[in-house]
């Protein structure tokens, strides 16, 4: 781990402004991902800006009938929040499918959106990884890629985004609220928040230098039956092979986002439209243009099955 300096920010705008002045600065909130990555020399910030005291830890109703979730709301608290459980059960279930109780107690809403991939080649600094060390190549493409992405990938990177929470937020059409170094606010639809690797896999979202997430806003509840089905190699405390967050209305219409298959929460509106026609039709639209590897091509068929199982569960419910 490299030596670093540390400051505690006074306001969100001050935090953003401080971060903008130092290209080697990072925000730290729960630290559940950043500290690990620093120990492994994958993240090497020279300066940490602690945002924990910024009073961004409230969950509030919005005038539009939605919910504004402060950036620092801990995953445990968000999952247990009455309104979330009642109106956005998908979000609560997705949160509880992630990590462990201890990690969820520390991990924050914004930090969850910003967590890095769990690709083993990203994690081993001796290996080629364009995301960690741009230009070095991708060890996973010719190596072990069972856990990695099948769609939205590029020749430089096939890493997945590991978040469960973000899958639910994508299905719920959340909006990411930020403050910029000059104090101006920005509202980015979660669909546009995470970026695909292209030829710059080191860039994972649209945040500008210094820009700080202050909250995530959910639109008013959409109702329907909501399910989060996460499939993994063990029953708990593992990243998804495939996960499906789905909302289906009484008339059979609905929406879904899937995890474990792409560099960002994966949702295709044309696939949503196929929900009344069943899993096969949905999967065909979700994975149009997919480029799986030999190791991970099963994820496409598996996603279809998980959609089918989720639909079956919802029918029974």
């Amino acid at each position: 781990m490299r030596p670093f300096s540390y400051e505690k920010a006074a306001t969100p705008a001050a935090a953003a402004s401080a971060a903008a002045k130092n290209p080697h600065a990072k925000f730290i909130a729960g630290g559940t991902n950043l500290l690990d990555l620093m120990k492994l020399e994958i993240e090497k910030p020279a300066h940490l800006i602690d945002v924990n005291g910024l009073a961004l830890d409230k969950v509030e109703a919005t005038p539009e009938g939605g919910l504004r979730i402060g950036a620092l709301v801990r995953n445990t608290d968000l999952a247990a929040h009455d309104k979330v459980r009642k109106d956005y059960p998908l979000l609560s279930r997705a949160l509880l499918a992630g990590a462990s109780g201890q990690l969820r107690n520390k991990a924050t809403t914004a930090g969850n959106l910003l967590q890095r991939t769990r690709c083993p080649y990203f994690y081993d600094t001796n290996q080629a990884c364009n995301k960690r060390a741009p230009g070095t190549g991708c060890g996973a493409l010719a190596g072990f890629s069972r856990q990695l992405a099948v769609i939205g990938t590029s020749n430089t990177c096939i890493a997945t985004h590991p978040s469960d929470m973000a899958i639910a937020m994508r299905a719920l059409d959340a909006v990411v609220d930020t403050v910029q170094p000059d104090g101006a606010q920005r509202h980015v639809a979660i669909a546009d928040f995470h970026t695909l690797p292209g030829d710059k896999p080191q860039v994972e979202n649209v945040l500008k230098p210094g820009e700080l997430i202050t909250s995530v806003t959910l639109p008013k509840p959409v109702g329907g039956a909501q399910v989060y089905h996460k499939v993994r190699d063990r029953a708990s405390y593992a990243f998804a092979l495939v996960s499906v967050g789905m909302i289906v209305q009484k008339d059979g219409t609905g929406r879904l986002a899937v995890g474990g298959v792409a560099p960002k929460p994966w949702r295709v509106e044309a696939a949503d439209a196929e929900l009344p026609r069943g899993a096969k039709a949905v999967a065909a639209k979700l994975f149009a243009g997919a480029k799986p590897t030999h190791d991970n091509e099963f994820k496409i068929a598996l996603t279809e099955r998980v959609i089918e199982a989720s639909l079956a569960d919802l029918r029974r419910a």
Binding site: R118, A142, G143, F144, R234
Partner: peptide, 30 residues
């Protein structure tokens, strides 16, 4: 039976999943 495998990267020549996040052993829920 169900999850443990040190995966060999046959090109580089090492066990890829060399931490407890990627070498999965059963947890209580299993």
């Amino acid at each position: 039976a169900l999850m443990e495998e040190l995966v060999v990267d046959k090109k580089v020549g090492f066990f890829v999943n060399h931490d407890l996040a990627s070498y999965e052993v059963p947890v209580h829920a299993d």
